[in-house]
């Protein structure tokens, strides 16, 4: 609990500073910043599904191949 507070305190300060800085950013910059965040979210979600589906497909293909081999 104590450790948590030690970590959390500077964190809150940092976040306050960061949000303050964010408030001072000119409008243009704010807009690109938030679009960039959307972009990253989409890439991250795309990577996750591609990796998972990639594994699914690779298992399926290997299974099909080995079954063909066993069928012979």
């Amino acid at each position: 609990m104590k450790r948590l507070r030690i970590v959390a305190l500077p964190l809150v300060v940092l976040l306050l500073v960061a949000s303050d800085l964010g408030g001072q950013l000119p409008g243009d910059q704010m807009a690109t910043q938030s679009l960039r965040a959307y972009w990253h979210v989409f890439i991250a979600y795309a990577i996750a599904i591609v990796m998972v589906l990639g594994w699914v497909v690779s298992i399926a293909r290997r299974l099909a191949r080995i079954e063909a081999q066993l069928g012979q």
């Binding site: 960039r36 990253h40 991250a44 990577i47 996750a48 990796m51 998972v52 594994w55």
Partner: peptide
């Protein structure tokens, strides 16, 4: 093998969040 797949997801999505 599963660990590698999910580890790669973790290692790529983490920096994407960090960049923001």
């Amino acid at each position: 093998e599963g660990g590698m797949v999910f580890g790669t997801i973790m290692l790529t999505t983490g920096p994407l969040w960090g960049a923001i």
